[in-house]
Design a protein around this nucleic acid. Structure first.
Length: 424
RNA sequence: GGAGAGGUGGCUGAGUGGUUGAAAGCGGCGGUCUUGAAAACCGUUAUGGGUCGUGAGGCCCAUCCAGAGUUCGAAUCUCUGCCUCUCCGCCA
């Protein structure tokens, strides 16, 4: 959420930002409501001041045993005026709130303006593997090895639900264990294990609600949502809190299952593991002081890249253009891994700085040692990393001519020493 | 799921309709004293909105879990929701 005061005082910048983000918002309406509201508040506060003064006097009259009947009667008129104005203000504030909730974050100055075609590749790591045979896709490999059962996943739940079996299940477990160990022992993150069902307030705090409602699983009986990413519960850990400046920055990592309805995305990249409804992810979340947040973004990106480097998976880093940025992000890097079987680059991590956009919405402030509030923190998060597409890259890049899969070295101790996945 | 109790400032805790934004204690901050520290003493100690002022700041409004209601007036009364605790039941 943007600061209404900022919008009021920076109309041109806001308009430009909205355009860069390709968002349509009725700013004139918002500003008009804002000025209406302030006019009404002056009126109302004045009436309330009269009311309060009179009520104090009534109290005094009663103490002095003077009959307050006349005074009380005159107060009734003011009370009814207050009752007339209050609902108008409330309605105005509601509409202001609704419009504010639909305004995306402003892109950072370093972000290229334009659509996805203006995304900038800023980095590339690793060599694409060369085979002396035609590399298979992860679907063929996994079905042949019988480590992923797509058909039975569908039987259990529906299309694009996955059943991992045997060494497939083991590899999944090895991946998130490895990543958690890496980020906690080498990158300074604290490990969290949050609920995967959260309430509407949490979903609103990080910006999924109200805009992304259709993309989420919702349990109507209890009014709870299945999280699309650990970003939601982990960022909301500090919702409505004031953090101590000396405790910042806070680094949290969490492994959770993520749930996405992917409504409307059928037919596009939906085969195999590329786009599934339920998947695992290790997430990195930071709460930092505003002046450090862009340095912290670079460090976060480095932490995510390290995962692929240790796995030996070639990747490239894109800085997203303004029109490709998510609703809440001011700046975002995507890491795409190369998958030899599909011969495609697949987005496997996304590292974003939200500046104070989420913190304002979720009310996460910080204070100095003297106890004085210093404003909102900046929040960042990134995948560290998402499992399915990492799994794709491992299966496809490490495949052998015989259809086996070599286990990347760093994962072997997590696989009970196994160095190659063969058919049972 | 059933029965009961309760949610007050950073914390403990008083307050059951009329200067109560809220006693007291603890903690925090500033000061006096001290070579320094502790103790003692003195002072100070919430947030949001609006408005005036170049500014320091002044003034007004709101806020005692949240929302609705009763009343001239609500921390205090009524209703609903959320949460916590105790007992009973069920349960991985």
């Amino acid at each position: 959420m943007l600061d209404l005061k900022f919008i009021r005082e920076n109309i041109d910048r806001t308009t430009a930002g909205l355009e860069a983000k390709r968002a349509r918002v009725d700013l004139d309406r918002l500003l008009k409501l804002d000025s209406n509201r302030r006019g009404l508040i002056v009126e109302l506060d004045d009436l309330k001041a009269q009311k309060n003064a009179a009520n104090e006097e009534i109290g005094r009259m009663i103490k002095q045993k003077v009959d307050p009947k006349l005074k009380i009667d005159s107060m009734k008129a003011i009370a009814s005026q207050v009752d007339a104005i209050e609902p108008i203000i409330k309605k105005t504030e509601e509409e202001i709130g609704q419009i504010l909730m639909t305004i995306p974050n402003m892109p950072h100055a370093s972000v290229p303006v334009g659509g996805p075609e203006f995304n900038q590749e800023i980095n590339r790591w690793g060599k694409q593997p060369i085979f002396d045979f035609k590399p298979k896709t992860h679907i063929e490999i996994a079905e042949n090895l019988d480590i992923i059962d797509f058909k039975r996943g569908t039987k259990l739940s529906g299309s694009n639900f996955i059943l991992y079996k045997d060494l497939g299940a083991r590899l999944e477990r090895a991946l998130y264990n490895f990543m958690l160990d890496l980020h906690t022992s080498q990158h300074g993150y604290r490990e969290m294990f949050p609920p995967v069902l959260v309430n509407a307030a949490s979903m609103t705090g990080t910006g999924q609600l109200p805009k992304m409602k259709e993309d989420m699983y919702h349990l109507q009986v209890d009014d709870l949502y299945l999280i699309p990413t650990a970003e939601v519960p982990v960022t909301n850990i500090h919702r409505d809190e004031t953090l101590n400046e000396e405790d910042l920055p806070l680094y949290y990592t969490a492994y959770t299952t993520c749930f996405r309805r992917e409504a409307g995305s059928y037919g596009k990249d939906t085969r195999g593991l590329v786009r599934v409804h339920q998947f695992d992810k290790v997430e990195l979340v930071k709460f930092v002081k505003p002046e450090n947040s862009y340095q912290e973004l670079e460090k976060l990106l480095a932490n995510a890249r390290r995962v692929f480097e240790l796995f030996g998976i070639p990747y490239r880093v894109l800085m997203l253009a303004s029109g490709d940025l998510s609703f809440a992000a001011a700046k975002c890097y995507d890491i795409e891994v190369y998958a030899a079987g599909l011969d495609k680059w697949l987005e496997a991590s996304s590292c974003s700085n939200f500046e104070d956009f989420q913190a304002r919405r979720a009310n996460i402030a910080y204070k100095g040692k003297d106890g004085k509030k210093k404003g909102f923190v900046h929040t960042l998060n990134g995948s560290g990393v998402a499992l399915p597409r990492t799994m794709i890259a491992i299966l496809e890049n490490y495949q052998t001519k015989d259809g086996d899969v070599v286990v990347p070295e760093v994962l072997r101790s997590y696989m009970g020493g196994l160095d190659i996945i063969k058919k049972r």
